[in-house]
Design a protein around this nucleic acid. Sequence first.
DNA 1: TCCTATGTTCAATGTTTATTGAACTATCGA
DNA 2: TCGATAGTTCAATAAACATTGAACATAGGA
Lengths: 123, 123
Amino acid sequence: MSRTPPHPTREQIELPLVLDCLSDPIRLAIVYQLAQQERVSSELCCGDFNGLSGKSNLTYHFAKLRDCGLMQTRVAGTNRFMRLRREDLEARFPGLLDAVLKSAAKDADRLQLITGCEVVKAE
Amino acid sequence: MSRTPPHPTREQIELPLVLDCLSDPIRLAIVYQLAQQERVSSELCCGDFNGLSGKSNLTYHFAKLRDCGLMQTRVAGTNRFMRLRREDLEARFPGLLDAVLKSAAKDADRLQLITGCEVVKAE
DNA sequence: TCCTATGTTCAATGTTTATTGAACTATCGA
DNA sequence: TCGATAGTTCAATAAACATTGAACATAGGA
């Protein structure tokens, strides 16, 4: 249970898989939350998403997000820290992640996204 | 068989449904082909996509694209003409469709998209 | 009017998906 | 060493999905 799980290389990131990953409301919420948190810290751990679903279901979604190249998992003790693979995504599909995140932000209510305690569009 | 099928209003277009639609290779190819053709004509008819799959399978994918608000279907005689709902998409999710289309263009080979000006026509 | 082209509908099929809970593993701190 | 914490694995399940072919509907032209 302690080794870092496999991740695709930048070049292996595939558009349909990325879009499919982002099309699930729970995974979109994970990605959104990760993006919101980026100003504070680039990483969050699994437990930070417990509000979205049960632990084993989250493990399933984390694996999908990892497998498609959207996020990176780092193992530290009993924790797993995850961060968005922004540079890789931007290199493969310029503007895509930002467009999705902006779209998600616009529909935050509808998508029941956690808009951050006070991180609401500071600039 | 002659009435115009139902379409969602602009406001009813939902991000997860749009992303899910675009995540399927056949549907992405349809959208891409429609976008490519836009300079020439904003519409294509079902038969123009026969190279992508069988007719009944295409009907299924067209319905998904229509239901999620990505395209508009117009009935004319025995033909159905389809076009991208660019304005509506842009209003709801600014930059999203373009980012996806650009990403798809980058991976045209990988995604086996028809890159030329030629449209596969059954005759 | 009949024939053909265009596209839909329907049922059947096999696959993938998301979700759940129980059992498990690993790490840390007291 | 014990117990709590963090997360994974596995099996089961129900729903959704993509694909196929056959039958059908409709409009237009010979």
